[in-house]
């Protein structure tokens, strides 16, 4: 079965699957405009490749491997949407279909380059979250740094807030994470453009303490890793 095909199926399951992670075969068939019988056949073959778990009558759910692949392709799709809309100025209604076709032939290297060019956008034009690349947070700034910031000129030093030294200041560049967490952080004052001071880090990747608008916040390490700042000098 062609790779393109498999990826479309992965995306469909990823979109449809409910809270328990299972998607009904009939729904997938409807979305991909195919017959349930042939969809079932595809799932059986995907199950053999360890991408999904298929249970007759119940439906299909992604394995860890399958979910990883689905997230990767979703990321490419959404990055492409931003690229097409923002850089190439394509009409919004065309963006989705174009991205759908392009996503399958874009290499990881190219999608990461797009990510850098667009300054790691958090959302696609459709408003959905763009998943961070799987290279881990460390490399997001590595990514920015080594590749050098492109056209826009001024080289900004964007790092996760956890990379600041105690007492160092920074300006919030952007936040990543679930909508709820991002909303909470901005409600507490960590809005883009705000100056913050890293007060303290705790050992063993414990929470950090950050000072914003003369209040002090403790933020868990995983959340803080997704707060990106432009580093300024020490206080």
């Amino acid at each position: 079965m062609p790779k393109e095909h498999v990826e479309e199926y992965l995306e469909a399951v990823f979109d449809i699957a409910g809270k328990d992670g299972t998607a009904k075969t009939s729904k997938v068939a409807k979305k991909l405009q195919n017959t349930p019988a042939s969809v079932t056949e595809v799932f059986q073959s995907m199950a053999r490749n360890g991408l999904v778990q298929y249970e007759p009558y119940k439906g299909v759910s992604l394995t860890a491997k399958g979910a990883e692949a689905a997230i990767k392709i979703k990321r490419k799709h959404r990055l492409l949407e931003v690229f097409l809309a923002k850089v190439l100025q394509l009409a919004p209604e065309k963006v989705h279909d174009e991205a759908c076709r392009m996503e399958h032939c874009v290499s990881d290297e190219v999608s990461d380059a797009i990510c850098r060019l667009l300054n790691a956008p958090a959302r696609c034009p459709g408003g959905e979250l763009i998943y961070p690349c799987e290279k881990g947070i460390e490399s997001c700034m590595e990514c920015q740094r080594t590749a050098g910031r492109s056209s826009s000129g001024a080289k900004r030093d964007i790092v996760p807030i956890t990379d600041l030294k105690p007492c160092q200041k920074g300006t919030i560049a952007f936040l990543r994470g679930s909508q709820k967490v991002i909303q909470r952080l901005s409600d507490l004052g960590l809005t883009p453009g705000t100056e913050v001071t890293l007060r303290r880090k705790t050992p063993m990747a414990g929470p950090i303490e950050v000072c914003v608008r003369r209040t002090s916040l403790a933020v868990g390490h995983e959340i803080a890793d997704n707060i990106f700042v432009e580093a300024l000098g020490a206080c």
């Binding site: 952080l185 507490l188 929470p207 002090s216 933020v219 868990g220």
Partner: peptide, 9 residues
Amino acid sequence: VGLIMEMPS
């Protein structure tokens, strides 16, 4: 979800 907490003086 992780920790987000205000630290009072």
